[in-house]
Design a protein around this nucleic acid. Sequence first.
DNA 1: ATTTTAAAACCGACCAGTCAGTCATTTTTT
DNA 2: AAAAAATGACTGACTGGTCGGTTTTAAAAT
Lengths: 196, 196
Amino acid sequence: MLKPASSTGKRELILNAAAKVFSRHGFHRARMEDVAAEAGVGKGTIYEYFESKDSLFKELVREGLNFYSRAKLAETGKDSLGEKLRRLFLVHLKFSIDYRDLSKVALSDYATGSEDIRRWVSSMRQEKVARLKEMLDQAKERGETGRDLDTGVAAVLIWGALGSLWYQVTWEEPPPDIDGMVDQSVQMVMRGLENG
Amino acid sequence: MLKPASSTGKRELILNAAAKVFSRHGFHRARMEDVAAEAGVGKGTIYEYFESKDSLFKELVREGLNFYSRAKLAETGKDSLGEKLRRLFLVHLKFSIDYRDLSKVALSDYATGSEDIRRWVSSMRQEKVARLKEMLDQAKERGETGRDLDTGVAAVLIWGALGSLWYQVTWEEPPPDIDGMVDQSVQMVMRGLENG
DNA sequence: ATTTTAAAACCGACCAGTCAGTCATTTTTT
DNA sequence: AAAAAATGACTGACTGGTCGGTTTTAAAAT
């Protein structure tokens, strides 16, 4: 049986260490021993808190996702589409700065790991795109976009654009002015969605 | 010493097998033995044609890249930006359909493999984005885009959008109408680039 | 044409390194 | 003192790469 999440701070400790170690070389090259060393615990201890390496990875990513979901869209449905997109972009990029290690893990290990993880990550992407499409559909309904917009394609494009920005911010040099970049980006995206 | 590329069709044979096997489970889970089996050769034979697993992967991706580079932009500098983008998108997506296995490899193993591969792939991305930025800069010069466009950000966004489309086409159900989708996408992108 | 011969191509059993996960033992807590 | 937590040496499974030996090919000799 696994210990409850609150037994000590040890669970958090391990999770943080995992973020650091996974982000260094990716899932495969990260050894459980290294995670243990980074956390300052014995290797065996990790298995008191996590089923397996796979499970540790999943918990790690889920934790991060939860975190920034919480900070995320209070989903005030009355905001304009532009405002919603701005917040979406901002939350993701802020996250990537505040939790750089975790962000690297989430981004770079997409294709890594077991078949199980692969499917899991892929389904998350699908869900994200689907949610984005919903948002666009609503906006379209309200006439905030072009009448003939293909929201499916648009959602894929926007998600990709955000992902690319995210990647850039996470891996390349620290960006100077996130807010400005986001404003600029959203402006571009919004123009793209409008009627020709 | 490695054998010349032309000694038999065996090199091609192995490369094709590698595309298939790598695309199935990603770089790490693909075993050289499986590649050998798929190609119908002994494991040792692979090492007559390729230095190592890493090198096999690189050659594979390079081969694919070469191929579609060739088919690519005859770079007729006088085409409109829209036309250039349309061709860029089309070439990538057509490639992903014709060489689905190879496409999966190129896409999903971005973060995978050795440190060496990781860096190599990352540098390719940088280069692609840089080239895209150049294209945008030229167009901006000619007044085809908004005067105040941040071409750096735009290049990142567009590359991401294309990548996302590429991913969708490669992994999800076979798309119905590539040309239509591309037209739609490029239209959106072009609107986004114009002056507000 | 046939045989000889040597080099080139091919092969897969094996080796050596790796690492996730276990568990008997030790340390800490209650 | 006994229960809980922590540990790290160990094991078992796995796989990239090697290498001595076999087969194929092609050229040379008869």
